[in-house]
């Protein structure tokens, strides 16, 4: 019974991810055969979810904070320092920084489990999320042209990431375990 399940899960992963590699989804630990595929797989997707939410949320908070501080005057240095102080004591800015740190930790964790070429296209979803949140939370007007632009950017990131992860030195025949990204 358990053996059956173990055999089924990786197969599903191949089907799902057949053109990239099975590597991002399987265990990268020292014992690749230990029956822990499912939890790791879940953990990776959970972290990717954290990534594509925390990043945009952080940017939204920063935007919110900067809008509340604006107008920021750049030139007379005294004015810039004054604006800087107001930014420094703004709560949304610190919430934004906290969110971005969360994003960064999740990004690092995901990169340690999965290939960069797998993480990169998935994380480009964040461009869509940020526009969506900007529209819903901040009430920004996002024109159709801008939505189209964001879609093309995601497509571009997808195409970039489908090229070989390593082009320097000897061609990487063995799947890198994350260190080459």
């Amino acid at each position: 019974m358990t053996r059956q399940i173990q055999r089924r899960i990786p197969k599903k992963l191949i089907l799902y991810n057949r053109e990239v590699s099975i590597e991002p989804l399987v265990d990268k630990g020292p014992e690749p055969d230990r029956p822990a595929h499912q939890p790791l797989h879940l953990k990776t997707y959970l972290m990717i979810l954290v990534m594509v939410l925390a990043g945009p949320v952080g940017n939204i908070f920063l935007g919110m904070g900067m809008k509340s501080v604006s107008p920021v005057t750049f030139w007379p240095p005294a004015q810039l320092i004054h604006s800087g102080m107001r930014v420094f004591v703004s709560l949304p800015i610190w919430l934004g920084i906290l969110s971005l740190i969360t994003f960064f930790v999740a990004y690092m964790l995901v990169l340690s489990w999965a290939d960069y070429s797998f993480v990169q296209p998935v994380s480009s979803v964040a461009y869509g999320v940020v526009a969506l949140l900007g529209w819903l939370v901040l009430g920004e007007k996002v024109s159709a042209l801008r939505w189209a632009g964001i879609a093309v950017i995601c497509l571009g990131v997808f195409v970039v990431s489908r090229t070989g992860a390593q082009t320097t030195g000897a061609q990487a025949t063995s799947r890198p375990t994350g260190g080459n990204g």
Binding site: I150, V152, L155, V157, S161, T168
Partner: peptide, 26 residues
């Protein structure tokens, strides 16, 4: 790094996307 043709295509797409976002500035 050797940037492949395919990667340049992706880069071009990103550039086009950003251009659209730029002109879609409301």
């Amino acid at each position: 790094e050797r940037v492949t043709a395919r990667r340049w295509i992706g880069v071009a797409l990103v550039t086009i996307g950003v251009t659209l976002v730029f002109f879609g500035k409301s």
